[in-house]
């Protein structure tokens, strides 16, 4: 199961925290700090897996699966029951979807449109489980939500 998904910038600032272990807020911050401490030491041409058992809030069997894009680290923390490469692909799908949505996504999009980022991620991973892997399906779901958001509250909602 996926324990959390974190987007952290090159200075260690969190840009998205999605935690499925129900940590307290200080624990989340500590987790971000510790993950960044581990990842920032790594160069870009090493492998995308790292043991995350040393992170205080994670159990020993935790693995960090991450990608580094420009100014952002996209990190998935998972236990041993997930396919490592599968999760790496999932990060790619998530980023590709953000890219489609924001047309060349950059850090500012994540900062100012964290609502949209949350919505997209909710369509990819839910409660620590992979929900959808098709970029098109994810976009369809997000667009449907967006359309509803634009309608006035009084309008009858029919799907």
């Amino acid at each position: 199961m996926i324990k959390g998904i974190f987007v952290i910038n090159n200075h260690g600032k969190p840009r998205l925290i999605k935690d499925f272990q129900r940590m307290t807020q200080p624990e989340q911050q500590q987790t971000v700090r510790e993950i960044f401490g581990l990842l920032s030491k790594r160069s870009d041409n090493v492998c995308n897996f790292l043991e995350g058992g040393s992170v205080t809030t994670f159990s020993k069997d935790t693995k960090l699966i991450y990608r580094h894009f420009a100014t952002l680290y996209f990190v998935v923390a998972a236990d041993g029951n997930e396919s490592d490469l599968g999760l790496l692909d999932l990060v790619q799908v998530f980023v590709e979807t953000l890219d489609k949505k924001f047309e060349n996504v950059c850090e500012l999009d994540l900062i100012f449109r964290s609502d949209m980022v949350h919505h997209i991620l909710d369509e990819v991973v839910m409660g620590g489980m992979v929900l959808e892997t098709s970029g098109k399906e994810i976009m369809d779901a997000v667009t449907a939500m967006e359309r509803l958001e634009l309608e006035t509250r009084s309008a009858a909602i029919k799907a």
Binding site: K18, F20, R22, M126, G127, M129, A141, A144, A159
Partner: peptide, 18 residues
């Protein structure tokens, strides 16, 4: 009856768990 509301509540309940 509204699937969009169902989806919202289902996502939240999964993220909560417990």
């Amino acid at each position: 009856a509204d699937p969009m509301l169902q989806c919202l509540a289902l996502t939240a309940s999964a993220n909560f768990g417990g």
